[in-house]
Nucleic acid binder design. Structure first.
Length: 259
DNA sequence: ATGGTGGCAGAGCCA
């Protein structure tokens, strides 16, 4: 049976809950990974999501960051749940096991600017994530790593590469870190089906970025080699970005046809 | 246009 997996940086789940509920009812993914829910766990809208058929695992915090994984499966069946990087006060990573598929939801730091301390935090976080994924692959051959990576891997993922050269989201150290994930044996599922086209997952709120299609592809779904043969589709759903009061990101979806 | 918009929180930080 197909396994439909999606990721969406919602930029406040409190504000975006109506969008998320509408989208879940229409698209019926098996898994939806959320980033930037921007709320503490006790404020998470479990009841509203359960009313449309979804159970949730949450790793939240006040005001900033926060990740969650939604599934139609009972919470208890998503065993080996981890809220990782306990030493990091920023809640940016959550992993669950769905049948024999390990799913790692990440909200990688933005990095602000290459001269900012937050950029060094981002590079450090990427290094830690690389080490974590290396270990996860040994434990779980079927691995999905999805979320807001805050990295546009190539110039085909950037509306104006010349204007952005060297900036955060596209700088060489960030792209090298992304390539290191691929070197672990992970594959950018979107590019299995759309090798070259410029298709974006995020548009800046400012300067009418969406209307002018001044975007970037920074939200990704990476899959390990044992899942590549079963990958039936991967695409970006631009529609929610056109709704009233949207997130600046839009959902990315990958379908696995697991036998 | 050295800004612009949006969320949180209630001024400035983060994206």
């Amino acid at each position: 049976m197909p396994l439909k997996i999606a990721t969406w940086n919602v930029n406040s789940l409190r504000v975006r809950l109506p969008h998320v509920l509408n989208w879940l009812e229409a698209e019926q993914p098996d898994i939806l990974a959320l980033q930037e829910i921007k709320m503490e766990d006790h404020r998470f809208p479990h009841e509203e999501l359960h009313a449309v058929g979804y159970n949730s695992i949450v790793c939240g915090q006040k005001t900033y960051n926060g990740v969650a994984i939604l599934s139609k499966q009972p919470r208890e069946s998503l065993d080996a749940v981890n809220c990782l990087y306990q030493e990091d006060e920023q809640r940016r990573l959550l992993a669950v096991t769905y049948h024999d598929v390990r799913i790692v939801n990440v909200y990688i730091p933005n990095g602000a600017h290459p001269s900012d301390a937050k950029y060094l935090y981002k590079l450090h976080w990427l290094e830690q994530l690389h080490n974590f994924l290396q270990t996860q692959l040994l434990l779980y051959p079927k691995l999905v790593v999805l979320g807001d990576f805050n990295i546009a891997p190539t110039d085909n993922d950037v509306h104006d590469p010349a204007a952005w050269e060297g900036q955060v989201l596209v700088s060489e150290p960030e792209r090298k870190a992304f390539q290191r994930f691929l070197s672990l044996g992970l594959h950018d599922s979107f590019r299995l089906f759309t090798p070259d086209d410029k298709v974006f997952s995020w548009w800046d709120y400012r300067a009418a970025g969406f209307r002018r299609n001044l975007g970037m592809r920074i939200d990704h779904i990476l899959i390990s080699a044992p899942l590549v043969a079963s990958c039936a589709a991967s695409y970006i759903d631009k529609i929610p970005r056109s709704w009233e009061k949207p997130s600046d990101h839009t959902p990315v979806i990958t379908v696995l046809d697991e036998k």
